[in-house]
Design a protein around this nucleic acid. Structure first.
Lengths: 208, 208, 208, 208
DNA sequence: AATGAATGAGATTTCATTCAT
DNA sequence: TATGAATGAAATCTCATTCAT
């Protein structure tokens, strides 16, 4: 979309950061030289576009996160019911995680205390209305259910959002836990979580 | 317990790491000099006890995580029912988080890709039987319920464990989300989550 | 020659190392900071051109050794007979030693067991055909004699080479021995050694 | 002899230094801890007997050098003629070198510019009359020849001493030169050098 | 006399950032 | 605009030496 507005060098830098992330690099210890070389540009050029290293990495991650979420947001509408919508999200998360992708790593990074994460949180708080992040995706899933959900109190809607978010995190944890993965395969786990979310929603509707 | 076995300088170092963590320092970028000074010992002394900086930090965090979990483990037994047990855990987590404590930050750090986190995960996998970590606490809560829960299949028990774990994470996320906190106070949120867990458990029992 | 191919910073570093050597510095204990400052460049710049301190010093010494030997190699041809050739070599060695130069110090360093010396020996073994080192100079002196020398067996030629080499070392030892120097002046000692070498060569020819 | 006067801890330290030397350690970079551990004593104890590390190493080397030379000095008298005397020296040197011994390594170290070597040279200059070093061994060999040699001028005697010394060094160089060793075996090389020395002496006698 | 825990000065090396080209 | 050579601040880590026991 607005990627066209991005200078080609900036695009190259974002690409390099994401590539390194996927390869499992520790972004807190990656060097500007490494990123610039990977992007095929000079080290000095980085400073034509960003004020410092952390700003560049944070922006690269934020950009990718937005793109990931936006894409998922678009795909959700096509699925017919809640179960399928959740299933789609989980499958995509799984794919992303398989390639060590940003959706997950970004969440991890947002939680730590580095300069990068501080900057990311700041950007998330000041994001533009049209930028789509993780909670927007969940919110859409909920809203798509329509009906009684819309009548929920603000509090309840908040709780519902976080509950579903925690189901997603549960799936992330599952992906990272080698021991558990031996006992439950991806599909089974996904089915369990989708059912959980359906039950969550039903419970909220009933409560009302 | 076995803290008495720790050399005083090691204790001082652990204390310094935890103190810095609580103050919100970025452990990936804290210096040995900073930690040593804080511990009131010489820089060189660090290397009398640890092979390198990362090893020291990882051990400090692991030590604290074990202590936190052990304490919670002990307190759980006193509570009369599932709701109260969960409530206790949430309240303690809240306290810990208020002081930016290890229970939470440690979890965050364990998720990233730094040398520290690699080492921590390694230690978690090789932990002694008697060392108590987060999942041991949850497991205790489940086991305390007794009755039908014990009859659950291995798969189900796995799912149940992860479900409750994700409820905890939900509470963590809530604590970090300024916007949501304005709409739901701690107590309300805690009550919601405890009820959620009770419902989770009931659902699992019924399914059987 | 190929000095023009050397980056100016590398030249400056080589110069600094040699200067320090001439001043009698202990190269095993000289610091990077000292060398860099002397070369008039930043400490960090050293690592743009060399992987570590030892590599830099070893290369500086090797470069100087080659240059010294090459120069001597060229001058030898102009001298009319064996005596004069040897005399030239001794005089130059003396000059070099007077300024604590590389020719001598390098030999010393090559004999010890430091990282620098290991690296130097490695370079000497893998030297290019056109690079001229100490034995090449001696070999030239021998070859210039022509005649019967060429008919010597491989063994004999080997022995001859080492014999002359040991005469050179004898002169080095003399230079370092304050007591002996009081009794024999440079010129006398040089004359003695030149005659020794002439006699050595005659003996070898006769033996044949 | 006067080894009995040495404190047992000092003996242990000397032994440790020599052992490390034989194993090919770079004495300029060996640590006090390494030496003390090897000697089976505490690090601090070193400073009860020596003012600093370099002093300890220099004294250890000097002590060993004296012992080696003394022993050789004693053995020389038993050999019947010049050739055999020289042969004995060469054989012993070879043995010592085979075990990477001090006689050789010490000479190397004496030539470099470290604190250790400075101290060693100092000790050599101020040695007691009865201490026997390398040149004393050579001097004995010369003196044993008796006759005309004693009539040589001081200058000539000096030159003769250094000539023979350089023959020894020639043998050292030979031992270190893998390429040459493939063409000449130890025995052949030794025979050559002994003959050389005999011829040297004859030449000096004749000159007179 | 003997020790080894503790130290801090100082070494090597890295790397974000600048700036002349 | 783009560059990468140059830099020096700052980091980790080593180790000779001290000193309380």
């Amino acid at each position: 979309m607005n990627d066209k507005e991005l200078a080609p060098k900036v695009m190259a830098l974002y690409g390099a950061v994401i590539a390194l992330l996927r390869e499992g690099a520790d972004l807190n210890n990656v060097t500007v030289a490494e990123i610039a070389t990977r992007a095929g540009i000079g080290k000095g050029t980085v400073y034509e576009y960003f004020s410092n290293k952390e700003e560049m990495i944070a922006q690269a991650l934020f950009h990718e996160l937005k793109a990931d979420c936006q894409q998922m947001y678009g795909l959700i509408s096509r699925e017919k019911d809640l179960y399928e919508k959740m299933n789609l999200v989980l499958i995509r998360m799984e794919e992303k995680m398989a390639e060590m992708n940003c959706f997950v790593r970004t969440m991890q990074i947002m939680l730590d205390n580095s300069v990068i994460s501080s900057r990311m949180r700041e950007m998330a708080e000041n994001k533009k209305e049209e930028d789509i992040l993780v909670t927007d995706v969940i919110r859409k899933i909920i809203d798509d259910e329509g009906g009684t959900v819309e009548k929920l109190s603000k509090e309840k809607r908040c709780h519902l959002l976080m509950t579903i978010f925690s189901r997603l995190i549960c799936y992330v944890l599952y992906q990272f836990d080698a021991k558990v993965k031996m006992e439950l395969d991806n599909e089974t786990m996904r089915a369990m979580i989708c059912q959980d979310v359906c039950r969550d929603l039903e419970a909220f509707k009933k409560e009302n």
